[in-house]
Structures are given as C-alpha cells and as structure tokens.
Design a binder for these strands. Structure first.
Lengths: 139, 139
DNA sequence: ATGCACCCTGTAGCCGCTACAGGGTCAAGG
DNA sequence: CCTTGACCCTGTAGCGGCTACAGGGTGCAT
C-alpha cells in the first residue's frame, strides 16, 4: 500500500487533478490500483512527480520534462542533451526577461506621466493610442 | 469602401484570424459588410485595432484592454482607472521579472555545473531530482 | 471561362492545467 | 447496520489568446 492520490498531491504540492492530468498525458506512469480502483502510487512515483514539479517550477515545458525524465532514467547516456535542453531554456528565460524589462520601462514611463485629470489629457491612453509616443522598441 | 480584413491585418501587423477573433469576442466592433459579405473596416476600426495591438504588445490582457478602450471612448471620465490598470500591470510585470530572474540564476547555476560526461554524474539531472540542491527559492 | 488571391463560416486544436457533474469506496460514529 | 463525510473514480468542458484547418463563396485579371 503506497500513497493515494491526495497524499501524493500533498507530498508534492500539487492537486489530484494535476496528477491525473500527468498520468493521462503519459508524463507520470500509470500506478497500480487497489481493490476499490483507487490509484496506489509508489515511492518511485513520488520521486518522478517531485522531479516533474521541480522542473515545472523552473519553467521547463512538458516536452522538455519528458526528455529530461527519459534521460534521468538512463544513467549511461551522455548528458549533452540535458545540457542542451537546460541551456536552451536558460536562453529563453533570458530573452523573456529582456523583453519584460523593455515593457516595464515603457509602462513606467507611461504611468509616471499620468498626472490625474480627465481621460482627454491622460498620457496613458494617449500613448496607447499612438505607438510613436513610445520611447522604446517593445514589441 | 474601407479596408478589407487582409489590408487591415497588414496595416496592424496581425492576421485576419486574429481580427475575426477580436470581433467575435466583442473587442473590436462589428464592421459593415460589402455586397459580397466581405468585412468593410473604417478608419475608426483601424485606430481601435492599433490601440488593441499596442496594448497587447505591452502585455495587457484582453479584459484590461476592454476597460482601457472603454475609457478612451469617453474623454470626460477620470483617468484614475486607467492609472490603476496600468500600475497594476506594471506591478505584475515587475513581479514576473523578479521571478524569472530567480529562475535564471538557478538555471545558470545548474548549467554551469555540468561538465559533460554521463547522465549518472550530471549535475543538471541531479539538481532536478533533488530540490534541496537548489541555491535559491524559485518556486 | 478559368485561374488565383482573397474572403466567408464553423469547428477544433494548442498549453498546462482547473473545474465541474455524477457517481463509487471506505472508515468512523451513532 | 446505517449514515455521514472525506476521499476517490471517469468523463467532459473551460480558461486565454490565439492559430489552423475544411469547405465553400467573391472578385478581378487573363
């Protein structure tokens, strides 16, 4: 008797719905079932789900996690592929940060110019209406 | 005769599909139709869609854009609400940047430790398997 | 009259969940 | 023994913001 779905959810900071979703999509292997047809998760499932949640927390998408989990299951392989996946994700995160920083600058600029008053004179709405008033390349 | 959907799309850097989607959801008002049942967009539609795309480019969600567009249509209103929406979005962007910066640090750390070799000794997969190896609070 | 670029509607899919509805299981308390 | 309540099951649909068809119509040039 291992873990029921609720216990596994609590142990990993997820929900039963999410766990069932991972099972449906094949990310988490199908567990055994009890007589009453309840899922019966093993310690291995717990490890795997912790891995998945950790990777999700770092922003890896499901396809990447699938690859990473397959690699983790096969210790003799070269880790170059793991490196590639992680580096690629790091690049994507860095690009996203840069893009958001540009948005932040533009938004700060907009908000700082708002002096209250009516919509007619509102800089926020003016800027939204006219891209040329933007100081940065943001999109 | 105003703009057909393809011309409007080119003028605003979108696609006909997206424009029809905005119309369906009521974000963009329904345009007139030609005899052949083609959409016939006016200059006002062009302005509105430019506004929408600009705000989307700045990361506002559709609900916010709906509010902002309604405000822009009514120049006598107080712009405090526009300010609140923009400031709230700015806050959200700043929080997102901070979160991504934490992810970036953790990912850099992971990737920097990978020295090649087999999966068995790969730091990337080790760290993913054991959250306690993380140096930062990332999720 | 034929080809081609464009337009139309309607529906389904993407990601990663989340939220039901409508039922079954199981242990504790009366 | 029966009920209550917490938990579990399956299946389906929804979120946001598009995107991608299929299957058909329009309009202009050759």
């Amino acid at each position: 008797m291992g873990l029921k779905i609720g216990a596994l959810a609590r142990a990993t900071g997820t929900t039963p719905e999410t766990i069932r979703y991972y099972e449906r999509t094949g990310l988490l292997p199908k567990p055994a079932r009890t007589d009453g047809n309840y899922r019966d998760f093993s310690a291995e499932h717990l490890r795997r789900l912790s891995f998945i949640r950790h990777a999700r927390g770092l922003g890896f998408d499901i396809a990447d996690i699938r690859s990473l989990a397959a690699l983790a299951d096969d210790p003799d392989q070269d880790c170059a592929q793991a490196d590639r996946i992680a580096s690629g994700h790091l690049d994507a995160v860095e690009r996203k940060i840069e893009q958001l920083a540009r948005l932040r600058n533009e938004l700060r600029h907009m908000v700082a110019q708002c002096r209250g008053g009516s919509v007619a004179t509102c800089r926020i709405l003016h800027v939204l209406s006219d891209h040329d008033l933007c100081t940065e390349e943001h999109s």
